[in-house]
Amino acid sequence: MFNLFPPRTNQHYRDVHVISSRKPTEVVRCYSDEPICPINALKAVEATLPPSEPGEVKQLKTFFG
């Protein structure tokens, strides 16, 4: 029998480092059933972050590989 909706396993992940000028570095892990593109991971994390405080600088970094 063919299963159209296989169970989710979240076997792939990518870490995104959020570096802030006012808070300690935070590591956000994105999970998926398929390999995750680094750019899509950065966009997904950026969409979930709260807005920056006045004078705060944030950098998002991930590693290719």
Rank of each mutant, 00 (worst) to 15 (best):
M1Q: 11
M1A: 15
M1H: 13
F2E: 06
F2A: 11
N3E: 12
N3F: 02
L4A: 14
L4F: 04
F5C: 15
P6V: 07
P7V: 00
P7K: 00
R8V: 10
R8S: 15
N10M: 14
Q11Y: 00
Q11L: 01
Q11W: 00
Q11I: 01
H12Y: 13
R14L: 15
R14A: 07
R14D: 08
V16A: 04
H17S: 12
V18T: 07
V18Y: 05
I19D: 03
I19V: 13
I19Y: 05
I19R: 13
S21M: 06
S21R: 02
K23I: 04
K23L: 14
K23H: 15
P24M: 05
P24Y: 05
T25F: 02
T25K: 14
E26L: 10
V27Y: 03
V27F: 04
V27W: 05
V28W: 03
R29E: 06
R29H: 07
C30Q: 09
Y31T: 06
Y31F: 13
S32H: 10
S32T: 00
D33E: 09
E34I: 02
E34S: 08
E34F: 03
I36W: 02
I36R: 07
I36Y: 03
C37F: 00
P38Y: 01
P38R: 00
I39W: 05
I39E: 15
N40E: 15
A41D: 08
A41V: 11
A41M: 11
A41K: 04
L42V: 01
L42Y: 07
K43I: 02
A44W: 03
A44C: 06
A44R: 09
V45H: 03
V45R: 06
E46I: 00
A47L: 09
A47Y: 04
T48V: 12
L49S: 05
L49A: 10
P50L: 10
P50Q: 03
P50D: 06
P50I: 04
P51M: 06
P51Y: 11
P51Q: 12
P51C: 10
S52D: 09
S52A: 14
S52K: 15
E56W: 13
E56Y: 15
E56H: 14
K58N: 06
K58T: 03
Q59Y: 14
Q59I: 08
Q59G: 13
Q59C: 12
K61P: 00
T62F: 14
F63Y: 09
F63N: 05
F64Q: 13
F64C: 12
G65F: 12
G65M: 07
